[in-house]
Design a binder for these strands. Sequence first.
DNA 1: CGGACCATGTAATCGGTTACATGATTGC
DNA 2: GCAATCATGTAACCGATTACATGGTCCG
Lengths: 185, 185
Amino acid sequence: MSLPHALLTSLIEKPCSGYELARRFDKSIGYFWHATHQQIYRELARMEENGWVSSSEVEGGRAGKKRFEVLPAGRAELQRWAAESAAPLRLRDELMLKLRAEAAIGPLGISEELEKRLHLHEQELANYRTIEERDFNAPSLSRENEIHYLILKAGIAYEEGRIQWTKEALAVIHKLDNNSQTSSR
Amino acid sequence: MSLPHALLTSLIEKPCSGYELARRFDKSIGYFWHATHQQIYRELARMEENGWVSSSEVEGGRAGKKRFEVLPAGRAELQRWAAESAAPLRLRDELMLKLRAEAAIGPLGISEELEKRLHLHEQELANYRTIEERDFNAPSLSRENEIHYLILKAGIAYEEGRIQWTKEALAVIHKLDNNSQTSSR
DNA sequence: CGGACCATGTAATCGGTTACATGATTGC
DNA sequence: GCAATCATGTAACCGATTACATGGTCCG
């Protein structure tokens, strides 16, 4: 399981409250490892039990607000985890299932779905490009930023690949739909 | 949830036993929607309760062997599901988490992991290329095969993109590691 | 006759999702 | 004063993973 290690990494980058962590997640690590606030709170509680992080009430902040910090044991755990090999990534793409259903019992009008996806991928790509310009436009980057840029580039390459493929898929589906129309005349 | 619909599609393509279904899954739909045999058996039982599939003991086969077939209600359900829009795909890539950890507390020797991934992606690509030559090499394809080919091409594009990115990642990591060596002399 | 594989299941656990719930603070 | 947002949680449910369990058949 990787969520606790994602949280450790994020807390090392910057100690903060569970709420802030959830927010930051949405805009960084969440792009490739989504988590809801409930998952995060539960996991933070477990990590505190394990002695990986410590929490302290924030003086002067809102009531009940905690600030989580990574303890040496947490840092050690993160190192241990980073050294073991990651489980191979398993894709789960519902769109491919629908295409397969389209092949089996279609036509089912999959084009709309493809158009929608195309739009989403284009939006996400534009988003990534904005981040790229904003954060990685400097003539030379720190070690940390070089690696963060690398991660972003994985996202960019993925979205670009998907956009290209989706366009091809639309072309094929249109061709097939036209053919079946023609032959049924 | 999509697993039952994946199973319906597969059973429409060819009625079979739960065991065979699990096997076929490994070599087709499983590439983008993995499922264990337990998930499949449980889901088949539920689908039978719902009247989406029917099972019959196979005469002359092994004892207890069942053959599942899709009923009209199952076919209708598959159509209904195909029309609704798919949830946007959420990636979960542990490797990106490790890179982020590498940025925060590295160097941790992420190169080995990247090399391993590169190898896996190259293997998977070779596998897909074999399938491509074997199944989609004809001068003209049926409607069904055109769509199956499209799905395969999504896999091929994904693996190729990953291979390219991983090579870039290795280059960046090596550059960073060498720089830190040089500057510490 | 023994090992590989066919074939189906139960049980326990755990992670992820969703709904519900509460109260404080900031800003209009 | 009221709405939005900050901030933290509980509870229920469901899907996924893993371990365990059973017995038949095919082939050498």
